[in-house]
């Protein structure tokens, strides 16, 4: 797009400023992880590596990360399957109630988490009579993760159309073969993007999790919340956050690379 030099620069500066604002609080978190103050007070009274050491010794923290990863992976997997199915249904077919189904997919994310949380809590405990466990968390997470997969996949389906699939079918490939060799490769980056967002959503979810986690199920956000109520633990939480941000670069970068390659190939 032909933007004047001035507007380009202005835009760049504004975008840069916004990013700076985005990163200032993260900087605070980073600094706090080295602070001698246990209550995250500012400015930090002193410098220490103690929290980094203790964070890596904290079995609870490690376990919580493990639990969160486990929950997020399974919830994402379920969301990938259900989200893809539903996007095919809505994109390739016109049927009565199509809009209702569309709304149904969006609802779990559009309604505030606390409502989803108490509704599911009530559902599991009083209607189904199942005790809360890690699986109830996974079911809850998968439910509101469907929408991120759905959106990415349906957008891709709309863009790619059905020509290639028709060609494949015309050439005699069955439904499965066509999906495996034609449709899926086209969807791969959309699935990746949707899956990544679903993973992130599940990984950091606290409100619905609070209401659906059983005894002893400590996801990372719950671990962090509990530690806010414990003496001398707050800086450890900062360490975990810093590590997570750093580690998160890898999957995001990989996803970017994969989808970027795909775009170049086309």
């Amino acid at each position: 797009m032909r933007l004047s030099r001035l507007s380009r620069t202005t835009l760049a500066v504004v975008a840069g400023l916004i990013l700076v604002i985005v990163y200032v609080p993260l900087g605070v978190v980073l600094v706090n992880s080295f602070s001698t103050s246990t209550s995250l007070s500012w400015p930090p009274p002193g410098f220490t590596f103690e929290w980094w050491q203790r964070a890596f010794q904290s079995a609870g923290a490690m376990e919580a990360v493990g639990t969160s990863v486990f929950v997020a992976i399974i919830a994402t997997a379920i969301a990938l399957v259900l989200g893809t199915l539903i996007s095919f249904a809505l994109q390739r077919f016109d049927f009565f109630g199509r809009h209702t189904v569309n709304l149904l997919v969006i609802l779990p994310i559009a309604l505030p988490g606390i409502i989803t949380g108490i509704a599911l809590n009530n559902f599991f405990r009083t209607i189904m009579g199942v005790p809360l466990s890690i699986w109830t968390v996974i079911i809850a997470h998968a439910t509101f993760c469907i929408v991120t997969v759905f959106n990415n996949v349906i957008a891709r389906l709309r863009r790619t159309g059905t020509k290639l699939e028709e060609a494949s079918a015309d050439l005699g490939a069955g439904v499965w073969t066509t999906f495996r060799l034609v449709t899926f490769p086209q969807l791969r980056s959309a699935l990746l993007a949707g899956g990544l967002l679903a993973f992130a959503l599940s990984f950091d979810e606290i409100i619905v999790t609070t209401f659906t986690a059983g005894s002893g199920v400590t996801t990372l956000p719950i671990f962090i919340l509990n530690n806010m109520f414990r003496p001398n633990q707050a800086p450890i939480v900062s360490v975990i956050a810093v590590v997570l941000v750093l580690v998160s670069i890898i999957p995001i970068w990989l996803a970017q690379r994969l989808s970027g390659d795909e775009q170049q190939r086309r």
Binding site: R54, Q57, S58, A59, G60, A61, E63, S215, G216, N226, N227, F229, R230, P231, N232, Q233
Partner: peptide, 17 residues
């Protein structure tokens, strides 16, 4: 045994060895 308690009442070393 399954215990419900205030944070800091049942510590098993997982938060701080």
């Amino acid at each position: 045994v399954s215990i419900l308690a205030w944070p800091g009442y049942v510590e098993d070393g997982s938060n701080d060895p």
